[in-house]
């Protein structure tokens, strides 16, 4: 563990066994905004998480001593700290398992620092405020959560109740990936958990109503093999 500086930035715990990656993250992220702490193993990460109470955890899934999924489970027993998982492309199943175990988001290695910062800020923002505004807007899309009213470029669009619930779920987790089974469980109930077709059909219909070009969705993006993400446009 290493203290970066005495500052009021948010505490970030990096759990990764690769020294080169910890070093790169340390150089790239340390600033007034973030104070970085490091752990090089799963057990080390767990005790650091308990001792430091970080504001966010960056967790490598391929740790030598403990499954990354297990690290997430043990942290989730006592803390809701945002966890972003770092994993290589080939392991879609691991990503889904990590997200279903309670991770907030994932990044595929290798990643750019810009993308990492965007994910970190989105996760920190979400944990700070739970969508307090009744009106959500992103680019040409506006959702009034009180009136259940959705407009695209100012024109109202009619959504079915299921489409609306799905859109609401996605925007309340804006910029965060939600797995297929998480969506199915929340919108359709546990019985539908293994029926991804209903989700695909509803997503397709929803995109036709809220996306300008459903073949190139700007709002609701697909994370192949993992789930969906609502991409909030920067104002």
């Amino acid at each position: 563990m290493k203290e970066s500086q005495e500052a009021t930035g948010q505490r970030i715990l990096v759990i990764d066994d690769e020294a080169a990656i910890r070093r790169f993250l340390h150089s790239a992220l340390s600033s007034d905004e973030f104070i970085l702490h490091e752990a090089d193993s799963g057990h080390g990460g767990l005790s650091a998480a308990a001792a430091l109470r970080p504001d966010l955890i960056l967790l490598d899934l391929g740790l030598p001593d403990l499954e990354g999924i297990e690290v997430i489970r043990r942290i989730r027993e006592w803390s809701q700290v945002p966890i972003i998982v770092l994993s290589v492309r080939e392991r879609e199943d691991d990503k889904v398992a990590a997200l279903d175990a309670g991770a907030d988001d994932y990044l595929t290695k290798p990643f750019g620092v810009g993308e990492l910062l965007a994910r970190m800020r989105a996760s920190l923002r979400r944990s700070a405020v739970q969508l307090s505004e009744p009106v959500f807007s992103s680019g040409d899309l506006t959702v009034n959560l009180n009136l259940r009213r959705v407009t695209v470029e100012g024109a109202e669009v009619q959504l079915t109740p299921t489409e609306y619930d799905l859109l609401r779920l996605l925007i309340t987790h804006a910029d965060k990936v939600i797995t297929h089974s998480q969506i199915l469980k929340q919108i359709w109930g546990v019985a539908y958990q293994d029926q991804p077709q209903v989700l695909r059909v509803t997503i397709s219909n929803l995109r036709k109503k809220v996306e300008r070009d459903p073949s190139r969705p700007r709002h609701i993006t697909t994370e192949p093999g993992v789930g969906y993400r609502f991409k909030q446009a920067q104002p």
């Binding site: 991804p196 077709q197 059909v201 397709s204 073949s215």
Partner: peptide, 15 residues
Amino acid sequence: IEPCDLQELIGCAIS
């Protein structure tokens, strides 16, 4: 193999 939306497939590839 699962039922997939053709448009979604093409969208993923283009993005």
